[in-house]
């Protein structure tokens, strides 16, 4: 299955992935219209300083602690992507507490959000010549200025 990972050798700590993530999850389009004057709630977060930095986002664990801990049954694995059904989420924050990577982020409304590899963001769809959707390219991967964030098919389990 596909996973996003970060090559810290090339991560510049520019934090642009956070903004592109926040924008993509607000429907995409003009970033300034979505984000001007707002505190962003990105599902990817850059750690580190100017010398060593790397972006962290959901590892899409095979046996996710968040899924086990969810009291509302809102978290499930859909085609390998650990996903949150925001209609079921009751905002208890158990998943926030159990995630070892700190990758679950409360939204403004109190329900949780997390990286879902942009599979629900129509703006990140990869299309073939006829316009059919063949996959999704995560916004952070697409816009990293130094190709530090990559999405690859991997067998490695978190």
């Amino acid at each position: 299955m596909k996973k996003i990972y970060v090559r810290e050798d090339w991560c510049l700590g520019c934090h642009l992935c956070e903004y592109y993530c926040a924008n993509a999850n607000l429907g995409g389009g003009d970033m300034w219209k979505n984000l001007k004057g707002k505190a962003i709630r990105p599902r990817i977060r850059v750690e580190g300083d100017n010398n060593v930095s790397f972006a962290v986002q959901c590892r899409h664990c095979d046996e996710p602690h968040c899924l086990k801990g969810c009291i509302a049954g809102a978290i499930s694995i859909i085609e390998g992507v650990v996903s949150i059904d925001q209609n079921k989420c009751v905002g208890c924050c158990t998943c926030v507490l159990t995630c070892p990577y700190g990758c679950i982020v409360p939204t403004e409304t109190g329900v949780m959000s997390k990286c879902e590899l942009c599979v629900n963001n129509a703006g990140q769809a990869k299309k073939d010549k006829e316009g059919g959707i063949v996959g999704f390219i995560p916004a952070c991967v697409q816009n990293c200025p130094n190709n530090a964030i990559v999405v690859e098919e991997t067998e490695v389990t978190a």
Binding site: L12, G13, C14, H15, L16, E18, Y19, M31, W32, L35, K36, G37, N50
Partner: peptide, 13 residues
């Protein structure tokens, strides 16, 4: 100023 969202990418870079 209308478009700047103060992401500070410019100051970091």
């Amino acid at each position: 100023e209308k478009k700047c969202i103060c992401c500070q990418a410019c100051s970091r870079q």
